[in-house]
């Protein structure tokens, strides 16, 4: 009985509804405990200050007065959570695999690195211009029925549908 439960929590992949319930509960829980909106991408402003202390950029110095705010701890926790999940389920530590990207596209590692860096750049820049990301807009914002977040999420999905299909047709030769 206990072994089955441990297996279901730590080793088998979770069914979508279980993950959805756990993630959705974060929205009211963070308000209940800290009167704070769920959101991840804003914390990358803190990371800029930590990794690249850039001095006088006004936005970084007004919005992120406290460099080591709760956002950094939240980000650190998510990394740790991914580590715990993969370690307990017996995944092999570091891996250069990235699903069908590395399975289908035979690029040298440097090209792959540039590709993912470019994707990350668009995520970072886009999230700040949009004012949030999947957690802040799509999950927190729509949970609170904010029209702005519904519109942002439609554009998130539209952008993703366009770029993913372009990659599938071009780089992956439609092989997917």
């Amino acid at each position: 009985m206990i072994a089955t439960m441990l297996q279901a929590i730590f080793i088998d992949p979770w069914p979508f509804w279980a993950g959805g319930i756990a993630i959705g509960l974060l929205v009211p829980l963070l308000y209940y405990f800290y009167n704070t909106a769920l959101g991840v991408s804003t914390g990358y402003g803190n990371l800029v200050k930590i990794f690249f202390p850039t001095g006088r950029l006004q936005w970084l110095n007004t919005k992120f007065k406290e460099t080591w705010s709760w956002r950094v701890y939240f980000i650190g926790g998510i990394i740790l959570g991914g580590f715990i999940s993969s370690t307990l389920s017996g995944s092999p530590g570091f891996t250069s695999e990235m699903g069908r990207f590395t399975a289908i596209i035979a690029w040298p590692p440097l090209a792959g690195a540039v590709y993912f860096f470019a994707g990350g750049l668009l995520l970072g820049l886009g999230a700040r211009i949009a004012g949030g990301c999947t957690s802040g807009h799509s999950i927190h914002g729509i949970s609170n029925l904010h029209v702005s977040s519904i519109l942002a999420t439609i554009l998130f999905l539209l952008g993703g549908i366009i770029s993913a299909n372009l990659i599938r047709i071009t780089l992956m030769g439609g092989a997917w």
């Binding site: 470019a118 750049l121 886009g126 952008g159 770029s163």
Partner: peptide, 19 residues
């Protein structure tokens, strides 16, 4: 903002990740 959201979406689809 909506332009930013579109850029974000393109990045999401390229990298297979969000923040």
């Amino acid at each position: 903002s909506l332009l930013g959201a579109g850029l974000f979406g393109i990045g999401w689809g390229l990298s297979g990740a969000c923040p």
